Amino acid sequence: MSTFNELQAKRRSIYALGKEVNKTDEELFNLVKTSVKNSPSPFNSQSVQAVLLTGASHEKLWEMTLTALKEVSPSEEAFAATTAKVKGAFQSGYGTVLYFTDRKIVDGLKEQAPLYADNFDDWAEEAMGIGLYSVWMALAEAGIGASLQHYNPLIDEAVKEAFNIPDSWVLRGQMPFGSIEAPADEKTYLADDARFKLFQ
């Protein structure tokens, strides 16, 4: 059993993903649900929503992403490089978790607690970070690699239409995951004295 800090060190951005995952779709769905449900959120608002895509749905997401990227690509050469990245690092995985913020919840909190209204957008982003990090850690614990991507808002409307996403859900990130086919590069760190201070 890894300690929390050992598990954090194990969690890395993995770009060499494969489809050899030793969990069922139902087990993966439960992992995502449990991780997000147990993540804290302001006022217990639970504004973080998640959608798990596997199989044909996972493939469809990344084909849709390539279609959108082709429209904004500056050249054929640039799009060829983008295609290689999308197919080799994201679509090659087993599945993708989509993360959304439910604006209906966030806007409702602004009305219910106007004194804190200016803070709720920031707090929703904090909740998003904690929620998706919890899933990422759970995947790492299961020996599954992942990375976090942000093709929103480019693909927002296509995703909503393809997967019947409620209008109030705003896409915040995509997490392709799968078997780890090659390890991440060694992680480097800034000097501690540039980031941390202790006062006693």
Rank of each mutant, 00 (worst) to 15 (best):
S2I: 08
F4C: 10
E6I: 00
Q8M: 15
A9H: 14
K10L: 15
R12V: 14
S13T: 11
I14P: 11
Y15D: 10
Y15Q: 15
G18D: 06
G18Q: 00
N22I: 10
T24M: 09
T24N: 11
T24H: 07
E26Y: 07
N30V: 12
L31V: 01
K33F: 10
V36N: 03
N38S: 12
N38I: 05
P40M: 05
N44W: 07
V48T: 07
Q49G: 02
V51R: 12
L53A: 00
L53E: 01
T54D: 02
H58L: 06
E59A: 13
E63C: 02
M64T: 14
L66R: 08
T67Q: 09
A68L: 06
A68V: 02
E76L: 10
E77T: 15
A78W: 12
F79N: 03
F79Q: 10
A84G: 13
A84I: 04
K87V: 15
G88I: 05
A89R: 14
A89H: 14
F90G: 01
Q91S: 15
Q91D: 14
G95H: 01
L98C: 13
K104H: 12
L109F: 04
P114Y: 02
L115V: 12
L115I: 12
D118L: 09
D118E: 13
D122P: 00
W123G: 05
E125W: 09
A127G: 03
M128T: 10
G129L: 07
G129E: 08
I130C: 07
I130E: 02
L132F: 10
W136I: 03
L139Y: 01
A140G: 03
A142P: 05
G143T: 07
G145E: 04
H150K: 11
P153E: 00
L154F: 09
D156Y: 08
D156I: 09
E157H: 09
K160S: 08
A162Y: 05
A162G: 07
P166V: 11
P166F: 03
D167Y: 04
D167R: 07
W169P: 01
W169L: 03
R172G: 04
R172D: 00
R172W: 03
R172E: 10
Q174G: 06
P176Y: 07
P176E: 06
G178R: 04
I180D: 00
I180C: 04
I180W: 04
I180M: 08
E181G: 06
P183W: 07
A184H: 11
E186Y: 06
Y189P: 08
L190P: 06
A191S: 15
A191D: 15
D192R: 15
D192T: 14
D192W: 13
D193L: 06
K197M: 08
K197D: 01
L198A: 13
L198Y: 13
Q200W: 10
